[in-house]
Design a protein around this nucleic acid. Sequence first.
DNA 1: ATTTGATTTAAACAAATGATTAAATCAAAT
DNA 2: ATTTGATTTAATCATTTGTTTAAATCAAAT
Lengths: 197, 197
Amino acid sequence: MKAKSASTEEKIKEAARVVFTKKGYAATKTRDIAEEAGLNLALLNYYFRSKEKLFEIVMIENLQKLFAFLAPTLNDTSLSLDKKIVTISANYIDMLFQNPDLPLFVLSEIRTRPERFAGIIKLDTYVLQSHFMQQIREKKKKINPVQFLISLMGMLIFPFLTRPVFQTSSAFDEASFTQLIKERKKLIPQWLKSMLE
Amino acid sequence: MKAKSASTEEKIKEAARVVFTKKGYAATKTRDIAEEAGLNLALLNYYFRSKEKLFEIVMIENLQKLFAFLAPTLNDTSLSLDKKIVTISANYIDMLFQNPDLPLFVLSEIRTRPERFAGIIKLDTYVLQSHFMQQIREKKKKINPVQFLISLMGMLIFPFLTRPVFQTSSAFDEASFTQLIKERKKLIPQWLKSMLE
DNA sequence: ATTTGATTTAAACAAATGATTAAATCAAAT
DNA sequence: ATTTGATTTAATCATTTGTTTAAATCAAAT
């Protein structure tokens, strides 16, 4: 009767991922997570000690997904700038399709307590001092390369942040959104290219 | 002793604007607002009946700022597409500088209860069916004009959404951020122009 | 000075929330 | 079958939260 595929601990984690990502930390009750997991409320404290500790685990995973996910491609010295932009666009959009609520959740929680996550994000190491940034700098010497990074990431992520806004319009259903994002996989690298010329 | 410039009601509203925008609805306690206003907790219910009602007032104001703010320029038939892009970029960035926390707060709350705000946002009327969108359609017939709208708004808004992320890097202080955004006022219209060619 | 209604105050309430507790149950070893 | 430690359960706790209540205070009219 204990031949379950998921341990209790893992069930709680998975439920926490779902509920925290959907509702954010403050609006998530421990009872919500217990219910989502189909388990007794007290188990959350038994396995994770506190709501806060559980949240931290979920948050660190999500930061990895959003930030560290980029590092290998950004720092790959064998790819041209154009190839990198194409690769990043494709990979990031695919990742976001699997985790559409992630950006808004993460940005919202970082805003609430930024100092808590500074050591994990490591923006300097993985992003700002990456090979990719060097490549941009060489291409456009007169403009801060961060400008292009922000625009690229903005164009990739923003539609996911505003999806609920677009869903308030009857002209936008799930299929429209998906279609729109698929088109962007092609458009964004083209746009970045013309911006860099 | 009642010759105050701000009425009690207005004081509460202003405090609510500050606290809700900073912390979001769920994490905001009525006691936080009372403290910010320097008033007695029970006054919130006396003047506004509930936390929810107070929030609604603040939220509607903020939606106007983010969405309706755009409508006049988008629908101004006397401006060329290029001029519109320049105007929107400048005006929106100025507005965001005064309300840097607004986008993240609004997007986050819309995500929590989108059906509540559909009637206020009026995306179809003011944005999707605007003169601006027609102008884009005429310029680039083969691409959904929403693509350009998303990219423009994404490039304008995204830096404000990710400001706390950038602040985790020691390379970014307030002055850097301001400088970066000022540059974008010029860069974004240029970029949009090349994207539309 | 008194009355009346409006506003403010501080305390209290009822429910919700994260956490704790102790007992029950399970699982493995002897 | 018993013991031991691990896990689970349901109840309880202590605190917090949005709201309500009743009294005090204010302000204007008489």
